[in-house]
């Protein structure tokens, strides 16, 4: 993945607009948060291969963290804290936000084909 270049990501988001796409949306602070710090809360949300269609999508923000929102036929979908992106070898837009230690905090991914259990691009 590389650091987000807003214009490039916006272009890719536009390419998926109006199509049936599959999304992976996730946010997490890890299963060990309250193990390492008893005052911390474990929170997270995850959906994989939700089939949606968005009229338009937007990447907003500046500096080092961005928000990405998709306007769906019947609702909305967004992710906050996105820092890096990649258009992978299967033409999927992968976006994620990482903390200082490189740990994933949030992910939003868009693909025209369902996400598989295991990535087939790698061996």
């Amino acid at each position: 993945m590389e650091v987000i270049v807003k214009e490039k990501v916006q272009q890719i988001i536009d390419q998926f607009a109006g199509k049936d796409v599959y999304v992976h949306l996730e946010t997490t602070n890890g299963a060990y948060a309250s193990h390492f710090d008893e005052n911390a809360y474990n929170v997270g949300a995850f959906i994989r291969n939700a089939k949606v269609k968005y009229e338009h999508g937007k990447i907003v923000g500046s500096g080092n963290a961005y928000r990405v929102g998709l306007k769906l036929d019947l609702g909305w979908l967004y992710a906050e804290g996105v820092t890096d992106y990649e258009l992978d070898d299967q033409n999927r837009l992968l976006m994620a936000g990482h903390d200082r230690e490189g740990r994933l905090m949030v992910a939003l991914e868009i693909s025209e084909t369902p996400f598989s259990h295991e990535s087939v691009g790698q061996s």
Binding site: G30, E86, E101, R103
Partner: peptide
């Protein structure tokens, strides 16, 4: 959550 340090994996390649 760990993608390597420095990061070398992403959510889709991590399992591989």
């Amino acid at each position: 959550r760990n993608m390597g340090n420095p990061v070398f994996a992403n959510r889709e390649t991590l399992s591989s």
